[in-house]
Design a protein around this nucleic acid. Structure first.
Length: 251
DNA sequence: AAACGCTTCAACCGCCCACTG
DNA sequence: ACAGTGGGCGGTTGAAGCGTT
């Protein structure tokens, strides 16, 4: 007997979430907390499956998420953790506050993998790359090209690719671990009050207003009476403060 | 300006595991 | 012990954006 789908998919919406759907989901979770994802879409008035709601919340709507590319320090940590844990993205993500497994997985596949290869490191084993038979063939071809006067004909593509790759390796070593911080969503675009990090559950005291104007939402981060800017991760890294004690505050 | 190819990442899919009755 | 269920996880997909020709 086959497994039942996680929800009845007939009539359910798929694809990108609209602002209205986001608003409904946020409203519901802020009012009721995280429970029984299967029931969430029905109760929140969403034509989505529970899994889709959970994913949207954990990967995008959660207020404690950091946005933008991984910092140099985070990237190094991901590489180190990956060498120990392998593709256990959720475990890796648990070491990086405000980052999701999906985000780290995507960043690994699109940025870090390439970067490691260019540096001559196998992203799977974290060992120095052993040249493949194909690489050796290219090397041989290049040597032949260099040796013969009319060698360029028919070998242009190979030698150019090889040259390009070599340039990449050089530049990759030069700018290793240089990541551009391009925040996609400003911290002041999210809203909540008194959320303990890194707890993902919304405390009952959490209240919300201004949902009609998401762009007007804002966070402030504080420890005790001290206002410490908009980036708690950087702050507690720099100051060595205990992240458990951080609070979000509405401003 | 248009066509094409490449890159990125949000979202989906399906499997696995823990829990419960 | 077993089957059903919910949630979590990792792999994959595809639309959108961007760069190049």
């Amino acid at each position: 007997m086959g497994r039942q789908p996680c929800c009845d998919k007939v009539g359910l919406k798929k694809g990108p979430w609209t602002a209205e759907e986001d608003k409904r989901l946020i409203n519901f979770i802020l009012s009721n907390g995280q429970c029984c994802w299967r029931a969430v879409p029905k109760l929140a008035g969403l034509l989505r499956c529970g899994k889709s709601c959970r994913l949207r919340w954990t990967n995008y709507l959660r207020p404690d998420l950091k946005r933008g590319l991984l910092s140099e320090a985070e990237e190094k940590m991901v590489i180190e953790l990956h060498s120990k844990l392998g593709n256990r993205w959720s475990k890796i993500a648990s070491h990086l506050p405000g980052r999701t497994d999906n985000e780290i997985k995507n960043h690994w596949n699109t940025h870090i993998k390439k970067k490691l290869r260019r540096m001559g490191i196998d992203p799977l084993t974290h060992e120095p790359l052993v040249p493949s038979a194909n690489d050796l063939l290219h090397q041989e071809q290049r040597q032949q090209v260099g040796a013969s006067a009319d060698g360029r004909e028919g070998n242009d593509k190979v030698s150019e690719e090889q040259q390009g790759e070599e340039e990449n390796i050089t530049s990759a070593v030069d700018d290793a671990f240089c990541t551009d911080e391009v925040p996609m969503i400003q911290p002041h675009e999210m809203i909540a009050q008194e959320i303990q990090l890194p707890c993902m559950e919304w405390p009952e005291s959490v209240c919300l207003w201004g949902l009609d104007e998401p762009n007007g939402w804002g966070f402030n981060f504080a420890q005790g009476d001290e206002q410490l800017g908009l980036d708690p991760f950087t702050q507690w890294q720099r100051t060595g403060l205990d992240q458990e004690t951080w609070k979000f505050e509405l401003f």
